[in-house]
Structure formats: C-alpha cells, structure tokens
C-alpha cells in the first residue's frame, strides 16, 4: 500500500499523471468515466437541457410513444407517461436525485464506517468486539430488507431512504478500514510517531488513516452505484422518493401498470439506471486497478 499510485509523485499534478496512466490502461474504465461525466453534466444543467418541466402534464399527449415509433412526436422524444409528462425530462431530472442519493449514501456510510473501523482497529479490546459484532449483525440481514425496515420505522421519503441505505453500507467500510488499520498499526512509522509522544488522535488520523484510504475509495465508488440501485429499488417499492418526484425507481413504479401497453415508460428509466450503474462500476474497477499496488506493473 505504501507504494500505491496516489502516494507517488511529489506534486499533485504528477500524482494525477501517474494515476491517470494506470487508470487509462483500462479502456472500459475510461468509457465509464466519460459516461459518468456526461451524467453529471446532465444532472447539473437539467433545467437547461430538459425540453419540458418534469412535472408538466400534457394531458392530450398522454402515453405517447417515443419519437421514432409510429404516432410519436419529436417534442416528446422518449414518449410520455400516463399523465402526459415528458419521459426524457423526467429521466434528466431523475439523474439529479440519483447522483444526490449516491453521493449522500457514500459520504454518510464512508465517514461513519471509516471512523468506526479506525477506532476498532486502533483501540482493539472490547470496543473492537462491540463495533465489529454490531456490524456483523447489520451484515447478517439482507441490505434491502434492512433498509425497508428502517424506512418503515423512519417513514418513507428520499432522505430517510438514503439514511437507511447508508446504514446498511456502513459495515463494509468498517471492516475494510479496520483491516487496513490493523496492518498499518504495527508498521515502524507508526511506532516512530508513537515514540515521539504522538497522541492517539494524531496516530489515527495523521499517521494511519491516509495509508488506509485506497481500498476505501474503491469501495466508495462501487457503493455509489449500488446506492443508486438501492434508492431506485426503494423508490420502486414506494418507500423512497414519493410519487411526483422524478426519481428513476419511482418512475418505474408509477408506470408499472403500463408495462404492457406503454413499455417505454418503464424501459427508459430502467436503461438510465442500468447505464449509470454500469458506468460507475466500470470506473470503480478502473480505480481499484489503478490504486492497487499489487497490480502495478512498474
């Protein structure tokens, strides 16, 4: 880990150069990154890009097929749903919510997980046992089921769904950080800091933590995609974002009755989820390869 790409060159620019060198080895990762950048761009400028307001109902155009199908209209490129709302606009606005959900879930679970893992690994003893057994318990319950239970307790809504999903993801970060902490803890540079009288906080956050981050970053990226997927799943089950909100999972849920006579209303949100998740996974794999010193060729 100590020779990993991020630690490498002296200036940030050189660090990026080396990182990019390893990252760009994988063409699929670059493709994923390109698509991801596109999604972020679309999400940021949703108001400008989308042809219609996402909640605007064009009653006379309800259930219009996509533009290239018979009866489709160019102004509703991906067709409309049961209430005549433009699917393309709703998907574009949905990207905002999905990216938001992904980021918040990852930020929450990563920061809590890393903190707990660091404490568990560093302190050891009963505290470690307590933290790790609680995490094992969380992991023992299927993630989505646990999230459902938590949302049922907290009440449905996008924010609660994100918190619930974040809780189900935390154990992975805890385990990862604890494992890295344990392996770093006995290294000489930690002993050297300890010897000069460094406090526990300093040892944990200044000495050890920066050396544990590579696998955590990779796990974070991969969690980002599953978080989007799980938010969509909760939305589909009616426990996440609520009806008029154009969240991808909710979009599928509100149109699922139309799956036979207006299949585009569920297909396109589904494809949006698929592509976003795929892109992030590809980027995550590329990151893992770039950050893992064992896969280094030089």
């Amino acid at each position: 880990m100590n020779h990993s790409a991020v630690s490498s060159k002296s200036t940030l620019g050189q660090q990026w150069q080396e990182f990019w060198f390893y990252f760009s080895v994988s063409k699929t990762a670059v493709a994923g990154l390109v698509f991801l950048v596109l999604v972020v761009f679309v999400a940021l400028f949703a108001d400008v890009i989308s042809p219609h307001e996402p909640a605007e109902q064009y009653r006379q155009f309800a259930k219009l097929p996509p533009a290239w199908k018979e009866g489709g209209q160019m102004q509703f490129f991906l067709g409309t749903d049961y209430a005549g709302r433009d699917m393309l606009s709703r998907i574009i606005h949905g990207s905002r919510l999905s990216l938001l959900a992904g980021s918040i879930v990852v930020i929450l679970s990563l920061s809590i997980g890393v903190l707990l893992g660091l404490i568990a690994g560093y302190r050891g003893g009963w505290l470690e046992i307590l933290i790790m057994r609680v995490m094992d318990t969380i992991m023992a319950v299927p993630g989505l089921l646990l999230a459902l239970v938590l949302v049922a307790i907290l009440g449905p809504g996008l924010l609660n769904a994100m918190v619930a999903i974040a809780i189900t993801y935390t154990p992975y970060f805890v385990r990862l950080t604890r494992a890295s902490t344990l392996s770093e803890l006995n290294r000489d540079y930690v002993t050297a800091s300890k010897m000069t009288g460094a406090s526990s906080t300093r040892l944990m956050f200044v000495s050890i933590l920066p050396n544990c981050m590579a696998p955590v970053i990779v796990q974070g990226t991969l969690s980002f995609s599953t978080a989007i997927l799980d938010t969509a799943a909760l939305g589909f089950l009616g426990m996440g974002a609520q009806a008029p909100t154009p969240e991808w999972g909710t979009l599928i849920a509100e149109n699922r009755d139309l799956i036979l006579n207006a299949p585009w209303t569920v297909t396109f949100p589904g494809i949006a989820i698929l592509l976003a998740v795929l892109a992030i996974n590809l980027v995550g794999d590329g990151l893992r390869d770039a950050l893992d010193p064992k896969l280094k060729r030089s």
Partner: peptide
C-alpha cells in the same frame, strides 16, 4: 530516540 531497521517501513509513505 530511535532509528529503525527498515527505512522503507519507518517513514510514513504519505508524508513529505
């Protein structure tokens, strides 16, 4: 104060 055996392990790789 102390100097360690392995100079590759005794310096924090993420610190200047």
């Amino acid at each position: 104060q102390m100097v360690f055996q392995d100079p590759f392990g005794s310096l924090n790789p993420r610190q200047k």
